[in-house]
Amino acid sequence: MGRFMSAPDKPTLPEEELDHIPGSEPSTRMDAWWWLVALVVGFIALLLIFKPDPFWNILQFVQDGIVITVTVTLISFVLMLGIGMIGGLGRLSTNRVIYTISTLYVELVRGIPLLVQLIAWYFAVPVIIQYMGKATGSPALEGFQADPIVLAVIGLVFCYGAYMSEIYRAGIQSIPKGQMEAARSLGMTYFQAMRHVVLPQAFRVILPPIGNEFIALLKDSSLVSVVAVADLTRRGREYSSMHFNPIEVWLLVALLYLVMTLFSARVVNWIEKKTRFER
């Protein structure tokens, strides 16, 4: 009902009003659920102010972990957007080889737990590379040392790329066939039509599920704590085992994750509203 009560900020020309479609205007009102973000932030602030020991100390200790968590999540997210697009296009390819490879990728990766994949990337892959170094007599490969963060990002992207591929595929398939036909009959190549006509529309369709994936990725990034990445979860565990105060540590870590996920959900919601369009 708020929509009918609040007048638009900008003065609109009569011409625009004639063509006005209800619900098509980007909402200028504050999304009501921001208060939940504020509530959690407020709660954390209260803990820090009134119980600086241990909460302020914990925050000091885990802050570099927050940076790692955010960095790993953002880098993985950007990369998986690309992998997902390639995978999604592959799943729609009429080329049998490309279709089979991308389908195998999606089906196999979806069937293995992310934790198992991350452990395999960190513990098994470097050993395989070292074996290969031995076999080929290459000292560079033989002495291969894994960077935990790089392998964690690869593991996350490899796994989430598969889920992303399916989201892209569904999004592209949801665009009416006539859009591709119209673009092709104007002389565009398949890739030109994809890039300029189909994908921009598909992207708006898949924005909500992509947003969900981002939030899921943010949470699942805590799994990298088992493969030697000093993220928020791992830093929390370190502090907790040093000071034996699990209740306070995990309360604060949980709240910090909650702030990040709730905030992300609001941003996704805002982007969705901005890019909404009429068919």
Binding site: P176, G178, Q179, E181, A182, A183, R184, S185, L186, G187, V197, Q201, F277, E278, R279
Partner: peptide
Amino acid sequence: RREVGMVFQSFNLFS
């Protein structure tokens, strides 16, 4: 296709 224009029943404008 560059020399042939096509008009569809369902318009198919890029929405």
